[in-house]
Design a protein around this nucleic acid. Structure first.
Lengths: 187, 187
DNA sequence: ATTACAAAGTGAGCTATATCACACTAAGGA
DNA sequence: TCCTTAGTGTGATATAGCTCACTTTGTAAT
């Protein structure tokens, strides 16, 4: 199970066996069933999660109770309510399983210890964060420049597997469109 | 001029005089007039910029020639076309002065050398990147949950100084609303 | 088989926002 | 001083997308 993590990190920084063993001591393994919550709005955010298998949705619920999908997280993705995680405050988003999911968990304490203990991993996290930021910026540009149909097509092109795995109503909640409108876009 | 940078970094990591001197060797100073370009779409992105004074806009131009503001950058902000910078490819956005602006410039080469030579600064960049990511995610949530008027009010609340400094047509291009619609929202 | 529920499609009417056209004001340059 | 231009406001009309209500389909459980 940790093998996936090793492979994932080594795409960015090479690791000796000792280094990887050290990294592993900071993570714990958990399994969740579809519909279970890893993070609930209003509660403390203990962990950042590395998805080994399965699929998650990061959800923000607005004043009227409507759910908006801030992000999906599939295999090899890192996910959490990062504001709450880094500042150790209460979650403003929930993280919920769309499929049965296996994750590796790292607490904020362990994250800091890990960065202090192994510079390479800090480099790794920096690179992840940089490209995470770029990804979000891309999504903003997609919003600024495109209508619902084009954004839908961009999403399908970027993550073709997603449409097999999640109902369209969730894609709509990610795209910021009503499910009815999305349903009318397809042709 | 570098003092601003020192103050800025020390909000996150403390620095000895030697360390700061080392950091400074990686930056160069530049001044630009209103309307000048720091980055032009289609050209190479040499630098990441730290804004000492002034105001910039990061702009993406769509297929129809319409300009969309991906981000503003004011004092103490870092800005660049980061995808092009990190991957050393051509810019897909331009960076242009809204006011006369002084910046500190760091090339990608120097950025890497600096991170290799001083672990502290890598920690600093990691923290900046993390919160940059969180900021973008916030903007996405704002899009998903709010209409034009609410997004405008959120923007004014978050950056009250902005409305004094930039024409409303630019705020509209940032919010993803037509300037006419923005003009009708105010009361 | 039968029921129950989640997902998807569709029609009708409504609303927020876009677009186009024009008018007004303020500021800077000739 | 006059002229030009950037910024802003506003009316009229068009449209993308929303909402509500209903139907259809697929799928899992009894």
């Amino acid at each position: 199970m940790h093998d996936k993590l090793k492979e994932h990190i080594e795409k960015i920084v090479p690791l000796s066996d000792d280094e990887f063993a050290f990294i592993c001591t900071h993570f714990t393994t958990k399994k969740f069933k579809k519909h279970q919550f890893l993070i609930q709005e209003g509660e403390a955010v203990k962990y950042s999660y590395f998805v080994v298998s399965g699929l998650l949705k990061l959800v923000h619920t607005d004043g009227t109770g409507k759910q908006h999908i801030v992000s999906f997280a599939m295999e090899d993705w890192w996910e959490s309510d990062y504001y709450a995680y880094y500042t150790q405050t209460k979650a403003t988003m929930s993280l919920e399983c769309i499929e049965d999911t296996e994750v590796l968990c790292i607490s904020f304490e362990d994250y800091k210890k890990l960065c202090d203990g192994l510079q390479k991993i800090e480099r790794f996290f920096l690179e992840k964060s940089n490209f995470g930021f770029i990804g979000s910026q891309r999504r903003i540009i997609s919003w600024l420049t495109s209508n619902a149909k084009d954004r839908y097509e961009q999403l399908l092109k970027q993550y073709p597997s997603l449409i097999q795995r999640v109902p369209k109503s969730l894609l709509a909640a990610y795209l910021g469109v009503s499910r009815e409108t999305l349903s009318r876009l397809s042709p």
